[in-house]
Amino acid sequence: MNPAAADWIARLGLAPHPEGGWFARIHTDARLVDTPAGPRAAATSIHYLLDRRSPVGRFHRNRSDILHYLQSGGPVDYWLLEADGSVRRVTLGLAPNQQLFLHVPGGVWKASVLHEPADHALVSEVVTPGFDYTDHEFLTLETLHADYPRHAGSLAAFVRPG
């Protein structure tokens, strides 16, 4: 593991994330809001890190909106599967054609991939209403092929095995 990634993992107390990469929840708002799925914290926040050992965050979606802020390293590519069947790639990084911030609406499939030759990307995320595992879903290969057949071959590597 590169020194920068190891330092962030130790400094922030990051643990392996089920999507890939590393994470730690850093905030849960004490206020609750009603949602169709039940009460949720008004907002939650995590630190999320991809590195060379775990360079991919597998396709998943949440009911809530997620705001992503690049904190260190990068660039990192985000692949978004839109409801109309289109695919959009957004790169978080420091170059003029890259962004420091990304908003992903609830219900949109997303994957993140550490951009070559970066050795890490540390992103902070804010979820509104707050994250709850019952609002989270991993993309399957069957859904990828059924809903995004034009892109299934190029994006299958970003789907969690099993």
Rank of each mutant, 00 (worst) to 15 (best):
R40K: 09
H68R: 00
K110H: 03
R53H: 14
S86V: 02
H60K: 11
A41Q: 03
D119V: 14
G73Y: 00
P149Y: 05
A83F: 05
P18N: 04
V126G: 03
S64T: 03
S54K: 07
P55C: 07
L100S: 13
L114M: 07
L70M: 08
E116D: 14
W8L: 11
R89Q: 15
L81I: 04
S124P: 15
R11W: 04
V127M: 08
S45H: 07
L67I: 13
A37C: 12
V126R: 05
L102S: 11
V90C: 09
A5W: 03
E142I: 10
A37L: 12
A5P: 07
N97K: 15
G57L: 01
W8V: 09
P16T: 09
P55H: 03
P3H: 14
L144E: 07
A43R: 11
H115Y: 11
H103Y: 12
D77I: 05
V159K: 00
I66A: 13
P18D: 04
P16L: 08
A157S: 14
F158V: 00
P96S: 12
A118P: 02
G107M: 02
E116Y: 08
L12A: 14
P36T: 02
P16G: 02
A146Y: 05
H145Y: 10
H151Y: 15
L144C: 10
G21M: 01
A152T: 07
L12K: 15
D147G: 13
L92W: 07
K110G: 02
G106E: 05
L67P: 00
G74I: 05
L114W: 01
A111F: 02
L14A: 05
V56K: 03
P39A: 10
V159L: 01
V104F: 01
S124N: 14
R88D: 01
P96G: 11
P3T: 13
A41W: 00
R40S: 00
R11P: 06
D51K: 02
F101R: 13
A5T: 09
R61N: 01
R11D: 07
A146V: 09
G85C: 08
A118M: 05
D77C: 09
G130T: 04
L12H: 12
S64G: 11
L50S: 08
G85L: 05
R160W: 04
E142M: 06
A5N: 06
G93R: 09
H136F: 15
M1R: 15
D7Y: 13
R88T: 14
D51N: 08
N97R: 15
H136G: 06
T143W: 01
D65T: 11
W22H: 13
H103P: 03
P96Q: 10
A15H: 15
A83V: 11
V159D: 00
E19Q: 06
P75E: 10
G162D: 07
W109R: 02
V127F: 05
T35Q: 07
R150I: 02
G74T: 10
G21K: 04
G106I: 04
R150L: 15
S45E: 06
I66D: 06
R11K: 14
E116G: 06
G57T: 03
L81R: 00
P161C: 02
S112N: 04
D65M: 01
H136L: 05
L80R: 09
